[in-house]
Write a protein that binds this DNA or RNA. Structure first.
Lengths: 140, 140
DNA sequence: CAAAATTGTAAGGCATGCCTAACTATTTGT
DNA sequence: ACAAATAGTTAGGCATGCCTTACAATTTTG
């Protein structure tokens, strides 16, 4: 009953959730293409996610996410978006760099740090002049 | 000739560097105790670090760090300290939480993000009232 | 509706990084 | 110096997560 997902499985779940936003039927082959890994590896991962009751996977019928899986996916996605936004909007980093780093950090950061960054970012948004001054510095 | 270290090897190197600050002779068994892993695992890791010319390891004689290893170690340690300080001093998080998260993030963050955080933290230090106001908020 | 294309699975491999158990080498202490 | 304690290594195992190759199932399409 260990609910802890590896970084890898979190990535799969996150992607599945994102793909389900736009299409009602997600196939394993799509995931393989997006993550640039083999169909076989995806197949293995999907079995693991299904074992953990995070998705329902029935081969050619496509992938469905369970309520539990959705909850977990949303958590990861929120972390992802929070860090991406912090890096891009608050710190003024390049979008791609912001995304790349958020993608890694989302899997290792604790809830406390995540929450605090969230708060801090909100605080910064309400003090845009402070951030603007930073961005105008010797940076860029 | 791939110079990329795994998170695990970076941790070993970082610890070796830190231990060499206070004692001139570091033994594998010390590392095993500090990282709470088996002597066997440490032995394997040290062979890998030596293969990459980051340390000089001759069994019972102890571990020495090479200039190359020192350079790499200092980089990781700087990232570690930067994130720890950002979390603890700037965001006002608990020291232990700050350390734990820095320990993970230091291995996955890119140089660009690291540098920017460094700059930002410096900027915040010069605007302590802004940070104090944040810390006094509904947080804590 | 059957051949072709697509999609999915199984088997066997590889690397990392950890483990334990058993062994060897070195150091320490009397 | 030699027995005991400490330190290090080797061998074999396990889990994760990726790979390729080959095969099976399904869907598409002529």
């Amino acid at each position: 009953m260990k609910n802890n997902l590896s970084a890898s499985l979190e990535d799969y779940l996150e992607l599945i959730c994102n793909l389900l936003e736009t299409s009602s039927c997600v196939k394993a082959v799509e995931i393989a293409k997006k993550l640039n890994i083999s169909r076989a590896s995806v197949s293995e991962a999907l079995v693991k996610l299904a074992d953990k009751n995070l998705i329902i996977y029935e081969g050619h019928k496509g992938i469905t996410i369970t309520p539990e899986g959705l909850k977990k996916a949303k958590e990861v996605i929120l972390k992802h978006n929070t860090f991406t936004s912090f890096f891009e909007n608050t710190l003024g980093l390049d979008k791609v760099i912001a995304e790349d780093n958020a993608c890694k950090i989302e899997h290792v950061v604790s809830d406390e740090v995540f929450e605090k960054i969230r708060e801090f970012q909100l605080y910064c948004e309400n003090n845009q002049d402070f951030i603007d001054k930073f961005k105008k510095g010797k940076n860029n």
